[in-house]
Amino acid sequence: MTVKYTEDHEWVRLEGDVAVVGITDYAQTQLGDVVYVELPAVGWKVEKGKEAATVESVKAASEVFAPLTGEVVAVNDELSGEPGQVNSDPMGKGWFLKIRLADPKDFDGLMDEAAYRAFVEGLG
């Protein structure tokens, strides 16, 4: 299954015309212990590059920007009780939301794993 990445440290996995979105292992390491994730309501329209969720550690709050444009069709409700899943399993149980893409072709414009890895290394 193809996973792609953004410069805002999100991963995106395409399942049909639905994109599953979370934050990368690099992002969760930078944040430290995640204590709260604020997710949008199902049915909300999100726009590429605009705020879609917020992830908080004890001393920081970071916006999660929508990697692609579409409609929120599901959010990971388990994170409200177990926000630590973002740290322990960022690419799995720590997923944030699912977006039905307005245009699935947009997915192709994101970074592949090699490009993302190079991008992170470039950050030092």
């Binding site: 709260y36 908080e56 004890v58 001393k59 920081a60 709050a61």
Partner: peptide, 12 residues
């Protein structure tokens, strides 16, 4: 829950 507050969230 200090992330609500000005010393962390600043203008938000």
């Amino acid at each position: 829950l200090s992330t609500r507050e000005q010393h962390i969230r600043r203008e938000k």
